[in-house]
């Protein structure tokens, strides 16, 4: 989880990832940021994210992203 937070802070330094729960819905992360994140996640955790997983509920909070990563790693 800490690795993930590090990645997130690197992409969007001004965001409070520990508490935000509306990263997509509130427009805090735009599509550039999301895709940068996806690229990093795929590299770091050796997973493949497809359009099916690219829905707001998977990216709205650091927890949600972490859950997605875990799910894909264990798939």
């Amino acid at each position: 989880m800490d690795d993930l937070l590090a990645i997130l802070s690197d992409i969007a330094p001004d965001v409070d990832f520990e508490h935000e729960t509306g990263l997509v819905d509130d427009g805090i992360l735009d599509s550039f940021a999301i895709l940068s994140l996806v690229g990093e996640l795929e590299d770091t955790y050796d997973i493949r994210i497809t359009p099916k997983e690219l829905i707001p509920v998977n990216f709205n909070s650091a927890e949600a992203i972490f859950a997605l990563v875990e799910r894909l790693r264990n798939a």
Binding site: S31, L35, E42, D43, I49, T50, P51, L54
Partner: peptide, 15 residues
């Protein structure tokens, strides 16, 4: 945009 960015070819280019 998203499907293209997540596609294999772009993914490899991204890597």
């Amino acid at each position: 945009f998203y499907p293209l960015s997540l596609s294999g070819r772009i993914g490899r280019f991204g890597k």
